[in-house]
């Protein structure tokens, strides 16, 4: 701060606290709803302070029958599906983009620029604009209702390849020269020098991609018809539909809470890497 103005300081903190309250309010309301029983959650006005039913709600949501009157998979299974999908997408993206960025930066080969441009094009095409034909491809390959179908079509992305390309370009040339003098081949150089050097970038990218994978909605919605393959994020829609008949808001909001805890935990616990990953992949 440049100068000391007590009034301005007070206003600064006031605005920030109000901002935090506005941002946190929906999450707080969700948490409160998950701590009351069904009867309390059906009377207006709804409570603003937590009750004591959190454990009961959690137990019923995770291992119970879930919402009455709906045929959904148990919540623990949906959490497992979401976790598998998020991990496959994030680790798969990192693996294939590390390899292709390595090839594009460190090798001279015919059609190198053709490969580069083909990857670059995918930067421009979000899955939403080509859903129908992509769905047909996945259906023809027999990958509906499988973890492969959930993750592989989302794995190819140019952003990760671009980020690793930037990282590799900043590695000094002397590294490769000395490695070659010592007799290291390309893959040895990749494992022993490039990978350790880009460790923090990989971790930062992992945080972003994990959240990207966990929060997928449209794609899982289309290719899973079997209830045992549903993910937690897409189950929210079924629950909102069921809420119009039997409003068990305590269970619905406990499920919503469970769906957002893993990505929030990742963001908060790895905040520094997260901010780094965000600013590096998008700029």
């Amino acid at each position: 701060m440049v100068e000391n103005r007590p009034l301005a300081n007070f206003i600064t903190h006031l605005v920030l606290v109000l901002g935090v309250i506005a941002i946190a309010l929906p999450i707080w309301i969700t948490f409160v709803a998950a701590t009351h029983d069904e009867i309390r959650m059906a009377q207006a006005p709804l409570p603003l302070w937590p009750g004591n039913q959190l454990w009961i709600n959690l137990k019923q949501t995770l291992f119970g029958t879930g919402l009455s009157g709906t045929e959904t998979a148990p919540v623990w299974l949906m959490l497992f599906n979401s976790l598998s999908m998020a991990l496959m997408i994030s680790l798969g993206k990192i693996a294939i983009s590390l390899l292709s960025a390595f090839a594009i930066v460190y090798f001279k080969f015919p059609f190198r620029m053709t490969c580069f441009w083909m990857i670059f094009i995918t930067l421009m095409l979000p899955v939403e604009v080509r859903i129908l034909p992509t769905f047909e491809v996945v259906a023809n390959l027999g990958m509906l209702n499988s973890y492969w179908g959930l993750s592989i079509p989302l794995i190819a992305s140019a952003t990760a390849t671009f980020m690793f390309r930037q990282v590799f370009l900043t590695v000094p040339d002397e590294m490769l020269e000395s490695a070659r003098i010592d007799g290291a081949g390309p893959m040895r150089f990749f494992w022993d020098i490039l990978l350790p050097l880009s460790r923090t970038n990989i971790a930062a990218l992992f945080v972003i991609l994990f959240i990207f994978g966990w929060n997928q909605y449209l794609w899982p919605l289309l290719i899973t018809t079997d209830t045992s393959m549903t993910t937690i994020v897409m189950s929210i829609k079924q629950m909102l539909e069921a809420a119009e008949q039997s409003p068990q808001w305590n269970i619905i909001m406990t499920t919503a809470l469970l769906a957002m805890i893993p990505p929030i935990f990742v963001v908060i616990s790895m905040q520094k890497l997260f901010v780094q990953g965000l600013t590096e992949t998008d700029k």
């Binding site: 941002i23 966990w214 929030i264």
Partner: peptide, 8 residues
């Protein structure tokens, strides 16, 4: 303030 980023 960054929590909502993580929410689908």
């Amino acid at each position: 303030l960054i929590w909502p980023y993580a929410i689908a």
